[in-house]
């Protein structure tokens, strides 16, 4: 028996009523190992205007490259309190911000490890479905071999890589350009 998957619909402008109880802007509690990073950025529309009614969801592995999910077959530990899930809204200036740890490398196709990355979903009024993208890290030599980055035209890869804003502080900037020049790469997942 086969059923077709249910159709997506937009989150609309009032999703915060339903989503705010689960806002999580810190994925790295005190017991979680790894190097802390603060990632902030803006969601911008096709005219460069900030999107004040957007939401960004994060899914990531821990610093050992292990997901807090019963199906991750790797024999590695997940620290107490690490879920790998985050959810942050944009503010009036389209700005979002979250704190986490840099994830380790997780298995990819063909037995190769993927470069450290965060899985990202973007939801806003006007988007009939979520947009799916990834955040990679600057100064990461494994980016050059990452299979997903290599699926993307070289000229657009930089939209997936966060930028260091202040050397040594762990502060990174990564923006979501929904449309037009500099448009962020979105994946069909």
């Amino acid at each position: 028996m086969s059923l077709p998957a249910t159709t997506w619909q937009t989150v609309g402008p009032f999703f915060s009523i339903g989503f705010s109880w689960l806002y999580r802007d810190n994925l790295a509690g005190p017991g979680v190992s790894g190097s802390r990073v603060e990632i902030s950025g803006r969601v911008l529309d096709g005219e460069g205007n900030p999107v004040p009614d957007g939401i960004v969801e994060i899914w990531q592995a821990n610093s050992q490259g292990k997901y807090a999910h019963p199906g991750d077959p790797q024999e590695k530990k997940v620290e107490e309190g690490f879920t790998g899930y985050g959810r942050v809204p944009t503010d009036g200036a389209g700005l979002f911000r979250f704190t986490t740890i840099k994830p380790g490398r997780v298995p990819g196709p063909d037995g190769h490890l993927q470069a450290p990355h965060l899985e990202i979903s973007v939801f806003t009024r006007g988007l009939l479905r979520r947009l799916i993208t990834r955040i990679y890290f600057p100064d990461e030599s494994s980016n050059a071999q990452d299979f997903a980055l290599n699926l993307v035209d070289a000229g657009r890869r930089s939209t997936l890589i966060a930028k260091q804003t202040d050397a040594g502080s762990g502060a990174l900037e990564w923006n979501v350009i929904l449309q037009g020049p500099g448009e962020t790469v979105f994946f069909d997942v």
Binding site: G46, V106, E119, G126, L128, L178
Partner: peptide, 20 residues
Amino acid sequence: SSIKRAPQQPLVWLPHTLSE
């Protein structure tokens, strides 16, 4: 609302990995 927010570039097909 979709006019200024929908991406114009085609989506990049991503094989599913442990991350997805």
